[in-house]
C-alpha cells in the first residue's frame, strides 16, 4: 500500500501539487486521472523519487520515501517497476536483453535462470517470439508489452504505469489494460496507472484519484464515477458527445 500525505510541489511560482493526500491499495489497479497539466505526472514522478516534493509524506507500506537513506532508496526502487509513456526500452539492446537487464544487474542467479525468467515474462505478455528483435522493430503496443515484461521481471511490489495507452488504438489499449489488471492480481502488486483514457477508467478503475489543477478533487471507483455529482469530474469524464450519450442511455 502507498499512502500520500499532504504532498505539495511548486515549480518557481506555479503550484503543481497542492496538499494531495490519498491511498493506493495493494492488489488493486489504482488510477490517477485528470486533464493535461493537472499534476498527474508530477505526482507519479514524486512517488517514484524522480522529483523531490516540497513537503509531505509518501509512505510505502509505512516507510517514508522522502526520509530514506540512499541505500534504502536503492532497495525500495528494486521493488518498483515502471512502464513509461514512451516505453523507454533500451534501444541498443534486444527485447530479451531489455527484460533481462534488471535481472543481470541485481540477480545472482545463473545466466540460464535469468534467461528463463525473462522468457517467462515475455511469454506472459504474449511476446514469446520477439526476444531477438530490437525495440524499433516492434509496434507501439508490442513495445508497451515488452516494457511491462521488463517492469515485472524482478517481481516488483509496486508497479507504476505512466499513460500506458497513449498512442495506441482502442483495441490494443484494452489488451494493455487487461494485462496490467491481470498482472496486478497475479502478483498482488500495488499498481498505479496515470491515464486520461476513459476506457481504462471504466475497465480497470478499482480506485480512482481525480486531480484538478493540482488538487485532489475526487476519489472513488469506476462504479461510483457513474453516479458522482461532482461537476468537475463529470465535465472531465463525460466531455465527449459519445460519453454523454452513454451516460444518458445508462440513466
Amino acid at each position: 500500500m502507498i499512502e500520500i500525505k499532504s504532498i505539495n510541489k511548486s515549480f518557481e511560482d506555479k503550484v503543481v501539487l497542492n496538499n494531495i493526500g490519498c491511498t493506493f491499495e495493494s492488489g488493486k489497479t489504482n488510477l490517477i486521472i485528470g486533464r493535461s497539466g493537472s499534476g498527474k505526472t508530477v505526482l507519479m514522478n514524486s512517488m517514484v523519487g524522480l522529483i523531490q516534493p516540497d513537503s509531505g509524506e509518501i509512505l510505502y507500506d509505512g516507510r517514508n520515501l522522502l526520509n530514506l537513506s540512499k541505500t534504502e532508496m536503492i532497495i525500495l526502487r528494486r521493488q518498483m517497476g515502471m512502464l513509461f509513456q514512451g516505453s523507454a526500452l533500451f534501444d541498443s539492446m534486444t527485447v530479451l536483453e531489455n527484460v533481462m537487464f534488471p535481472l543481470d544487474m541485481f540477480s545472482d542467479e545463473s545466466y540460464k535462470e535469468r534467461k528463463r525468467r525473462a522468457q517467462f515474462c515475455l511469454d506472459r505478455v504474449n511476446l514469446s517470439d520477439a526476444g531477438d528483435k530490437l525495440p524499433d522493430e516492434l509496434s507501439g503496443g508490442m513495445q508497451k508489452r515488452a516494457a511491462i515484461a521488463r517492469a515485472i521481471a524482478m517481481q516488483p511490489k509496486y508497479l507504476f504505469c505512466d499513460e500506458p495507452n497513449s498512442g495506441l488504438d482502442p483495441k490494443t489499449s484494452l489488451v494493455i489494460d487487461k494485462l496490467i489488471y491481470e498482472i496486478t492480481k497475479e502478483n498482488n502488486m500495488t499498481t498505479i496507472v496515470n491515464t486520461h483514457d476513459m476506457n481504462s477508467v471504466m475497465g480497470i478503475g478499482e480506485n480512482i484519484v481525480f486531480l484538478y489543477h493540482g488538487s485532489l478533487e475526487w476519489q472513488g471507483n469506476k462504479d461510483e464515477i457513474m453516479t458522482s455529482d461532482n461537476q468537475r469530474l463529470n465535465d472531465f469524464i463525460f466531455a465527449s458527445d459519445f460519453s454523454k450519450r452513454l451516460r444518458e442511455a445508462n440513466e
Binding site: 524522480l50 525500495l76 518498483m80 509513456q85 523507454a88 541485481f106 507504476f160
Partner: peptide
C-alpha cells in the same frame, strides 16, 4: 529525452 535514463534510475541503477 526518451526516459531511458529515468528507467535506469527507477530500477535502482
Amino acid at each position: 529525452v526518451t526516459q531511458q535514463i529515468d528507467a535506469l534510475e527507477i530500477m535502482g541503477v
